[in-house]
Design a protein around this nucleic acid. Structure first.
Length: 484
RNA sequence: CGGGGCGUGGCGCAGCCUGGUUAGCGCGCUUGCUUUGGGAGCAAGAAGUCGAGGGUUCGAAUCCCUCCGCCCCGACCA
């Protein structure tokens, strides 16, 4: 009893309860798990090595996919002349409130202010204008990994900061069809990263007119559900048509010798994804990482009392590590008690823990414990090479299935405004309804529930019955949710 | 920008109302000993221009004024 109480206060001391204060819990987990911390500059954060390692484990497979689909990495400057942004009306109107301006250089006022890039459509169109002459130059498939700046009013770790890291892809195509295929192709890459690597099931589809990117013909996105039932947009992919190329007078000579505007796209996934992983899988014990993106997949905790026992474990370790050859393993030899390490590595979300002590060694075994459910299993040392990878895979699947089950449990199909209002009043999650597509309906719902349309669900064709909000003929199904 | 709160060792706070010169407590940190299979115990120690500036006073963390910074709540966004 005494032990239990102590444990309880230990956890309360470290992180707030997820069920009681979700934003507080999130904040605590990010800092205590050492993913990120506040920085000296308001609205920005320091990404610490453990958090950055997670980002790298998301970034690397995504970069691989981007290259596999024919794109090349470029680098464009972070400082963009203000006039560039002003060429596309919708675009500048959408982003102007978020500009951060550089007005001085070398102690003197600049002739033209430079904007810290909020995104690079304008810079890239300006540059590629010189490189694209003929249909033979198309498509141009660019990507760049960089930081962008947006003057956000309230910051939250990974989810919304004034500076963040992402990848932005920008492509230029001869035809609309080709460009639209590109938009869908990259959205599919994002779905893959989210579902197969981050174990977060997503809804993928178009955004409504009001939710689309400033300057786009249409936007698509993947949306995930966090464990508080709120929606998080985890990546976007936009079709611009000729909007940007016309604004920048970026033309090419077509197959029958006429000047044409390329159809362009852009798409991005950011460090927000790290926040998504925290909020999609974490629990009251802290972070929980899908094995495929966990910086440490297996932590080994040696357990010993005497020097003799310590030496015994030291002697056995090379063999154990040899078994775990292709796995990201960390051995925690720090001078702390085992119980402390158990709790700390659980807080940091490591999927598997291996305890090796005299009792285990006597039997030629190790105790393997899952972060998922603390299930403990004795595994013969010689079988670790087979068992551990299988367990990691199973955990990866289990996290995905659990998240999917949660989302399904919290997704309802509704057919009236009253039902939608009541749902968001009393429940959490997504409401799917038939919808006519009018922005007025989104306003109505937002005013009464704060929920917005997240994605227009593809594939189902024309839904049965009238628009749930206004009763006009419905043209599509749409998912509503309260969003981050 | 409008409404509410807060600035005191790295972190979290007490002290302030009712001024008094050694400014405390918890966590963390350092060292040592004992511990070690679910967040250890004891002992010794280091660490603070009390957000900044000005004023009142014999004397200011404490009272007054100004400024700065931060957090929460109302309008945008990956």
């Amino acid at each position: 009893m005494a032990v239990e109480e102590k444990q309880e206060t230990g956890f309360v001391k470290d992180i707030r309860k997820q069920s009681v204060d979700f934003p507080g819990w999130y904040n605590d987990v990010v800092r205590k798990a050492q993913l990120a911390d506040n920085s000296p500059v308001a609205g920005t954060m320091v990404i610490r090595p453990y958090g950055y390692a997670i980002w790298e484990n998301i970034r690397d497979p995504l970069d691989e996919l981007i290259k596999q689909t024919g794109h090349e990495n470029w680098y464009f400057p972070a400082l963009i002349p203000l006039s560039f942004l002003q060429k596309e009306r919708e675009h500048v109107e959408g982003f102007a409130p978020e500009f951060q301006l550089v007005t001085k250089g070398g102690g003197k006022d600049l002739e033209e202010p430079l904007v810290l890039r909020p995104t690079s459509e304008t810079m890239i169109a300006s540059v590629l204008r010189d490189y694209i002459q003929s249909y033979r130059d198309l498509p141009v498939l660019t990507n760049q990994w960089n930081n962008v700046f947006r003057w956000e009013l309230k910051a939250r770790f990974f989810l919304r900061t004034r500076e963040f890291l992402w990848q932005e892809g920008h492509t230029f195509h001869e035809t609309a069809t080709e460009a639209e295929e590109e938009v869908a192709r990259m959205l599919e890459c994002y779905r893959q990263i989210a579902e197969e690597w981050c174990a977060i099931p997503v809804l993928a589809g178009r955004k409504s007119e009001t939710e689309k990117f400033a300057g786009a013909q249409y936007s698509t996105a993947i949306e995930g559900m966090m464990v508080d039932g709120k929606a998080l947009q985890m990546a976007t992919s936009h079709y611009f048509g000729e909007n940007f190329t016309r604004a920048y007078d970026l033309t090419f000579t077509g197959r029958s010798n006429e000047r044409q505007f390329p159809h362009s796209t852009s798409w991005g996934m950011s460090t927000r994804m790290v926040g998504a992983v925290v909020m999609a899988h974490g629990d009251d014990s802290g972070l929980q990482l899908p094995p495929r993106i966990a910086p440490v997949q297996v932590v080994i905790i040696p357990i010993f009392r005497s020097d003799a026992e310590r030496h015994q474990i030291e002697a056995a370790l090379p063999g154990v590590l040899d078994e775990l050859d292709d796995i990201r393993v960390k051995v925690d030899w720090r001078d702390e008690r085992p119980g402390f390490k158990f709790n700390e590595w659980e807080l940091k979300g490591v999927p598997l823990r291996i305890e090796i002590g005299p009792r285990d060694l006597a039997k030629g075994e190790a105790a393997v414990v899952r972060r998922l459910d603390r299930l403990k299993k004795a595994v013969p040392l010689g079988e670790l090479a087979l068992t551990v990878p299988a367990m990691l895979e199973k955990i990866q699947e289990a996290l995905f299935e659990r998240a999917r089950g949660f989302r399904e449990k919290h997704t309802v199909r509704l057919t009236s405004l009253d039902a939608v209002v009541k749902f968001f009043d009393t429940e959490i999650g997504f409401a799917v309804t038939p919808w006519c597509g009018r922005s007025e309906d989104e306003l109505t719902v937002k005013e009464r529930t704060t929920a917005t349309t997240r994605v227009i669900l593809p594939g189902s064709g024309r839904p049965e019955g009238p628009c749930a909000i206004c009763g006009r003929p419905a043209v599509t199904d749409v998912a509503w949710g309260k969003a981050y």
